[in-house]
Simulated assay, not measured.
Amino acid sequence: MVAAADAQNYAQKLGISHGMSVQELGWDEDTDDALRDEVEEVTGSDLLDEETDEVVDVALLWWRDGDGDLVDALMDAIGPLADDGVVWVLTPKTGQSGHVDPSEIAESAPTAGLTSTTPVSLGSWTGTKLMQPKTPSKQR
């Protein structure tokens, strides 16, 4: 029962709410189905895949050590992102297979034009929120 209670916090921790469009990148058999299911339940729609041409509010990027160049993946993730959209890089926790050193995310984010925030715990995964910097020209 504890796992179900924890799962109910995933979308909240990710700042995801009803009506948001969420794109999922890097899905594989090791991704957390409870997290995916809750995001779909909260938003009221299916996760969008890599092929979507919709503007998205949130991109969930499942990322593991050995998946390739994180900067390239982040550039792909921000393509369909709304101006105020965010990218969540989801990595296996320390000690798990595929763990990514947090410094890799911290170094890759600015290269892709993103700023990172403090990671959050999501079961056996860690989520790091990356945001596009606010530009003065967009403020009115």
Rank of each mutant, 00 (worst) to 15 (best):
D33L: 12
S121L: 13
L48N: 00
K13Y: 11
Q139L: 15
A106H: 03
L35E: 11
I16Y: 01
D65S: 13
S116Q: 11
M1S: 11
P80W: 08
D37M: 05
D65W: 00
V89E: 03
L81M: 10
V71T: 13
T115N: 11
E41T: 12
E24S: 12
D84H: 06
R140T: 14
L74Q: 07
G68D: 00
T118D: 15
Q12K: 13
A11Y: 01
A7T: 13
Q96V: 05
A106F: 09
L61H: 04
P110A: 02
S103R: 08
L114M: 05
D53M: 08
S116A: 15
D49S: 15
W62L: 00
D67P: 03
E40Q: 15
D37V: 06
P136L: 12
D32Y: 12
S121R: 11
V22G: 05
L25E: 09
G95P: 01
L74F: 02
L61C: 01
K138S: 15
T126W: 09
E40I: 04
S21E: 12
M20E: 10
G26N: 04
Y10T: 00
D28F: 04
M131Q: 12
Q132T: 14
M131S: 14
E51K: 14
T126D: 13
A34L: 14
M131D: 10
T31L: 07
Q23P: 01
S21D: 08
M75N: 15
